[in-house]
Amino acid sequence: MQALLSIENVSVSFPQPKRLFGGPRVSLRAVDDVCAEIAEGETLALVGESGSGKTTLGHVVAGLRKPSAGRVRLRGAELNRNNRALAGRAIQIVFQDPFSALDPRMPVSDIVAEPLRIQGIGGKKERRERAAVLVEEVGLPADALNRYPHEFSGGQRQRIAIARALAPAPELIVADEPLSALDVSIQSQILNLFRDIQKREKLSYLFISHDLGVVEHLADRVAVLYLGRVIELARREDIFTHPAHPYTRALLDSMPRIGTGRRRKRSIGGEMPSPLDPPPGCVFHPRCPLAQDICRKVVPRFEPLAARPSHSAACHFKEQA
């Protein structure tokens, strides 16, 4: 089966300002040679700490940033300037901060219908009707249409943002940390909304999160990002039961779990190195409890595990986990 979306060797680098006197021109590699696929109706979770490049990758998929290398294909067709309209309709994005996501000067009806307006789909009346349907679909009262964003709470705003993303009947929604700005009590409601919509509309999600707990409830597969590189990619149950990369294990250990009462005190030591100056060998070795000499010198290949071909990781000791 052909994948809905394929990310092929995508890299993004930000050139740094030139220095006046000498010094080689450095560039910051925010995303480094990432490959991944998303099937129809599937949710791929992208997990990593802040600075791991997950948002940048999300922006590339949403067509907001051109990759410095590699390409993104939608049903086999490469997304570029020539078919922006296609990507603009088929791929929508939901942001983290629901307060910045909605134009305070627009009534909700205009906000929700905006992608249709931009794409030139339907007339004014049809767009408004569509907006009314969508507003109800995301669980808001019908009279929300005439109101302005400042009259809504964070959770309700996120519903409006989701309604907007649904407007042009997209095939993929890039959800960039859509829960992390919300109160915990609201988070599960929005999470359920994402799930219900997926069931109804047969959507795919690229779900970006720093929180594995959120991912556990929604993802079909999980990609773990570290310093712009995918270091592990596997089905959800495999990630949670047999993680192959020490970084993934550390992330799981630092995850708060319901039932255990309090957070286990095993967070990852150290800080992520600067992407301006990534460590040689395995990028994770300065923080890795298992690091050996080989890790400091040789870059581990990102390849499938012998036991589970659907499970890949970039670690010299992945088979020993």
Partner: peptide
């Protein structure tokens, strides 16, 4: 840099549309 501007761009909005519809009114 606000997300509503970014969202409009993600939907394929051009510079003129974004400037007149989102930036100027704000």
């Amino acid at each position: 840099e606000r997300d509503y501007v970014v969202a409009a761009r993600a939907s394929g909005a051009g510079a003129f549309y974004t400037m007149t519809t989102h930036v100027l009114p704000n």
